[in-house]
Design a protein around this nucleic acid. Structure first.
Lengths: 210, 210
DNA sequence: AGGACAATCACCCATATGAGTAGTTTTTAG
DNA sequence: CTAAAAACTACTCATATGGGTGATTGTCCT
C-alpha cells in the first residue's frame, strides 16, 4: 500500500521549459501525479492551500517572493505537506534558510529525473532527500569552524559567561579572584572582537566555541 | 578513475559476528578493501593513525571509549579520512554529538550491505550518507522548536539584545523610550525564565527564537 | 637570554543593568 | 462589549559591567 500509494506533487518554478518538463515527467510516472504547477509563489500559496498536495517542489529564485518565503508560509498552513527545494542555489544561506523555513529536502537542478522521483518517494516515507554536496554542507555545519583563538582558561570562563554567571560566581567556581576573571574576560573580548557580554555569548554559540 | 579507485576501509565494532561479516563483505567487493578491523577504539586509534584508511566505519556503543570520542580523536589526527557511524543508536544526542565530533555519515545497523557499500563510495565522493530517519532528524533540527512565547515587540527587542545593543541603542532604533525598552526586557526575562542578558541571548540562540 | 603569552591580582571611574514600583493607552480576543 | 494582554512611559537604587592602567610569576619557544 505504501509502496503503491499515489503521491500528489505541486511544482513552483518560473522557467516554463523546466516547469512543463518536470510536471510531465512526474505526472506520467506510475505512483505520482502532478496536477498543479505555478510560476510564482503568490498564486501557488493560494491554490495549494485550497488543494493541498503531498509534496511541493519549490524553486528558490522566483520573480517576486522567494521560494524560501513561500515554504515558510505554506508549511505553516500545511504542516503535513513535505517541501523539497529544487534549485541551482547551493550557497549556505539558501540551504540553511530553506531548512529553517520548513523544507525537508534540498535537491540541485542537475538531479536526474529518476533520482528526483525517488526523492519524492523518500520524503513521503520519512526521509530527507538531499543532493550529496548539500548533505555534506549540512553535516559539516556541525563541526567546529576553526579552533578557538582562546586559551583554555579563557574558554572555561567563556563557557560560564554563556551560562549567565557573573564575575563573582565565576571567580568562586574557579577559585580565583574577581579581578582575575575580569582580566580574562577583557582578553576574551579583545580576541573575539566584541565589547559586551551578550556579543561574547552570541559569538561563542554561533561559532561553537562552547 | 574515480569510479574504479580502490577505497580502503577500517572497521571499529565490538561484536565479533558483525565485525567479521562487515569486513568480509567490504573486502570481497570490487573497489573496496578492508584490512583493518578493531573491537575497541583505543587500539583502532593507535593502528589507524599509523595506517590511515580512506574511510572508517565506527560503532558507538563500544566497551571502553565511545565511538564518538574515537571519531573526535582520530578525525583530529586524520582530517582527510571520512568517518561513518554505523550503529543502532538513533537518539538525538548520539547523532548530533557524532557530527560535531567529525563524522560525515551516519548509518543505522539495519542498512543493507549494498547500500552500505554505496554509502562508502558516496562519502568519498563528497557526500554525506545518512539513513533516511537520521537525515530527517537533522533537517528537522533546523526548524523552530515551538513558537516563541514572546510578543512581536519583545522578539524584536530580543533580536537586538543578541546583537549586543544596549538600552539606548535599542530605544533609538525602535523610536521608543529607554524605559520602555527596559520594561520589555523585564517581560522577556520573565517569559524566558532568565535573569541576565547573557542567559537571554543563550536561550534565544539555542531555541532559535531569533 | 629574550620575547610572547598565559595566568594571576589590583584600583579607579563612568555607565549599564536588573529589580521594584506605578502608571496610561492601545490592541486583541472571548 | 469587556477583560486581558501588549505596548508604552517614568522613577529610584544597588550592583554589575567595561575601559584604562599597571604589575608579578611562570612557561614555552627561539
Amino acid at each position: 500500500m505504501t509502496e503503491l500509494s499515489q503521491i500528489s506533487v505541486a511544482i513552483v518554478e518560473d522557467d516554463p521549459e523546466i516547469r512543463k518538463m518536470l510536471s510531465f515527467i512526474i505526472d506520467r510516472s506510475p505512483g505520482y501525479s502532478c496536477k498543479q504547477s505555478y510560476e510564482e509563489c503568490e498564486s501557488a500559496i493560494a491554490a495549494v492551500k485550497k488543494n493541498p498536495t503531498d509534496v511541493v517542489l519549490m524553486d528558490i529564485g522566483l520573480p517576486k517572493m522567494s521560494g524560501i518565503e513561500g515554504v515558510r508560509i505554506l508549511k505553516e498552513a500545511l504542516p503535513e505537506t513535505d517541501f523539497i527545494m529544487l534549485t541551482i542555489q547551493d550557497d549556505n544561506d539558501s540551504v540553511f534558510n530553506s531548512l529553517c523555513a520548513g523544507a525537508t529536502g534540498y535537491l540541485l537542478k542537475d538531479t536526474p529525473p529518476a533520482e528526483l522521483l525517488h526523492s519524492i518517494r523518500e520524503v513521503r516515507e520519512g526521509g530527507s532527500p538531499m543532493s550529496s554536496s548539500i548533505a555534506r554542507k549540512i553535516t559539516g555545519s556541525f563541526r567546529r569552524t576553526a579552533q578557538s583563538p582562546l586559551s583554555s582558561r579563557e574558554s572555561e570562563i567563556l563557557e560560564r559567561l554563556c551560562n549567565g554567571d557573573n564575575y563573582k560566581a565565576i571567580a568562586e567556581s574557579l577559585f580565583i579572584s574577581g579581578n582575575t576573571v575580569r582580566a580574562h574576560i577583557k582578553s576574551i573580548y579583545r580576541k573575539l572582537h566584541v565589547t559586551t557580554r551578550a556579543q561574547a555569548v552570541r559569538t561563542a554559540l554561533q561559532n561553537r566555541l562552547v
